[in-house]
Amino acid sequence: MGEAEETAEKVGIGQKIVFGLMMAVAAGVYYIVFLNWVLMVPAQNLPYPYK
């Protein structure tokens, strides 16, 4: 984040918040929906030594 100031164009804080929210939603969708929900279901049937 610190480096951002050194780039040519300035980025407004509002823009950052909007993008941050987008990212937060994306992370939430990825981690919770994809990893935890989609992956966990087949993982229940893993054999030893996962048990």
Binding site: L35, N36, L39, M40, A43, Q44, Y50
Partner: peptide
């Protein structure tokens, strides 16, 4: 048991 897979995936 199933939790370890999404953990590693993260």
């Amino acid at each position: 048991i199933g939790l370890s897979v999404p953990q590693v995936a993260s």
